[in-house]
Amino acid sequence: MSKTRVAVNGYGVIGKRVADAVLLQPDMELVGIADIATDWRIKSVAGRIPVFASTQDALTAMNAEGLHPLGTLDDLLAQADIIVDSTPKHVAAGNLPRYTAAGVKAIFQGGESHSTTGHSFVAQANYASALGRDTTRVVSCNTTSIVRVLGALRDAGLLLRARGVLIRRATDPWESHLGGIMNTMVPEAKIPSHQGPDAQTVIPDLDLVTIAAKGAHTQTHNHYWTLQLTREATREEVLDALRAAPRIAFIRMSDGLVALNSTIELMRDLGRPRGDMWEVAVWEDLVTVQGDEAFLTYQVYNEAIVVPETIDAIRALTRTAPDAATSMKITDDTLGMRDDFLSPLPRP
Rank of each mutant, 00 (worst) to 15 (best):
S2L: 11
K3V: 04
G12S: 08
I14W: 02
G15V: 05
V22S: 00
I36F: 04
A37C: 11
T38V: 15
D39N: 14
I49M: 12
Q56G: 13
A58V: 06
T60M: 12
M62N: 02
M62V: 08
L70Y: 12
T72K: 12
D74Y: 06
L76M: 15
Q79E: 15
I82N: 04
V84K: 02
D85Y: 02
H90R: 15
V91M: 07
G94Q: 13
T100S: 14
A102I: 06
A102R: 02
I107T: 06
I107W: 02
I107P: 01
G110V: 03
G110E: 03
T116M: 11
N126L: 04
R137M: 15
V138W: 05
V139P: 01
V139Y: 01
C141G: 13
T144N: 15
R148L: 15
D155A: 15
A162S: 14
T171N: 10
T171M: 10
T171R: 09
P173W: 04
W174C: 12
H177F: 11
M182G: 10
M185D: 11
P187S: 10
P187R: 05
H194C: 12
A212K: 01
A212H: 06
K214D: 10
A233G: 03
R235S: 07
E236F: 01
E237F: 07
L239F: 07
A244R: 13
R252T: 11
L257D: 05
V258K: 11
L260G: 03
I264P: 00
G271Y: 07
R272F: 05
G275F: 09
G275C: 10
G291Y: 11
E293A: 14
Y301S: 13
N302V: 11
A325L: 10
D333C: 09
L335C: 09
R338P: 01
P344K: 09
